[in-house]
Computed example of a mutant assay.
Amino acid sequence: MTAIHATALVDPSAQLDATVSVGPYTVIGPHVKIGAGTTVGPHCVIEGHTTIGRDNRIFQFNSLGAVPQDKKYAGEPTELVIGDRNIVREFCTFNLGTVQDAGVTRIGDDNWIMAYVHVAHDCQLGNQITMANNTTLAGHVQIGDWATIGGLTGVLQRMRIGAHSMVGFASHVNKDVPPFMVVDGHPLEVRAVNLVGLKRRDFSDASLKAIREMHKLIYRQGKTLDEARAAIQALTAQMPEAAADIALMDDFLGSSVSGIAR
Results as ranks from 00 to 15, higher is better:
92 C>W: 11
50 T>D: 13
34 I>G: 03
36 A>G: 00
88 V>A: 11
193 V>I: 07
15 Q>I: 08
160 R>L: 07
72 K>C: 04
8 A>Q: 00
118 H>R: 09
88 V>S: 10
147 A>M: 10
151 G>K: 11
214 M>H: 07
234 A>N: 15
224 T>N: 00
28 I>D: 03
153 T>V: 14
52 I>R: 01
206 A>E: 06
111 N>W: 03
67 V>A: 13
79 E>N: 02
43 H>M: 00
212 R>H: 04
141 V>C: 05
134 N>S: 15
261 A>I: 13
59 F>M: 12
102 A>Y: 00
52 I>H: 10
253 L>E: 01
208 L>H: 05
97 G>E: 03
82 I>N: 00
132 A>S: 14
204 S>N: 01
121 H>M: 10
51 T>C: 02
102 A>V: 04
116 Y>E: 14
174 N>L: 02
206 A>L: 10
72 K>M: 04
86 N>F: 05
224 T>G: 07
157 Q>C: 03
117 V>M: 12
67 V>L: 05
15 Q>V: 07
51 T>K: 06
84 D>T: 09
41 G>E: 07
130 T>G: 12
232 I>C: 08
103 G>F: 01
236 T>M: 06
95 N>G: 09
89 R>N: 14
242 A>D: 10
62 N>L: 06
190 V>L: 03
210 A>Q: 08
246 I>S: 11
131 M>F: 15
74 A>W: 00
81 V>A: 08
153 T>D: 14
47 E>Q: 13
94 F>H: 05
56 N>Y: 01
87 I>S: 13
101 D>L: 07
102 A>P: 04
139 G>N: 10
163 A>F: 06
242 A>R: 06
10 V>R: 09
146 W>P: 00
133 N>K: 06
177 V>G: 06
50 T>A: 13
52 I>L: 11
10 V>T: 08
146 W>N: 15
32 V>K: 06
22 V>N: 01
190 V>F: 10
222 G>V: 02
86 N>Q: 04
212 R>S: 13
199 K>W: 04
161 I>W: 06
72 K>Y: 03
206 A>M: 07
68 P>M: 06
90 E>P: 13
259 G>P: 11
45 V>S: 14
18 A>P: 04
49 H>G: 02
121 H>P: 08
252 F>D: 02
96 L>Q: 08
28 I>T: 00
139 G>E: 06
140 H>K: 06
146 W>E: 11
205 D>I: 02
36 A>K: 05
80 L>C: 10
59 F>D: 05
157 Q>D: 12
89 R>F: 12
135 T>Q: 10
169 F>G: 15
11 D>L: 01
92 C>A: 15
69 Q>R: 07
167 V>P: 12
173 V>P: 04
232 I>W: 06
213 E>C: 13
52 I>S: 00
236 T>E: 02
72 K>Q: 11
193 V>K: 03
223 K>L: 11
110 D>N: 08
155 V>S: 13
160 R>V: 05
243 A>L: 01
250 D>E: 04
81 V>M: 01
108 G>A: 07
198 L>W: 00
237 A>C: 10
190 V>W: 09
255 S>W: 07
67 V>F: 08
214 M>F: 05
71 K>M: 03
238 Q>K: 15
130 T>L: 14
227 E>M: 10
14 A>Y: 07
89 R>P: 14
128 Q>C: 09
157 Q>G: 13
25 Y>A: 02
149 I>Q: 15
249 M>E: 05
46 I>R: 09
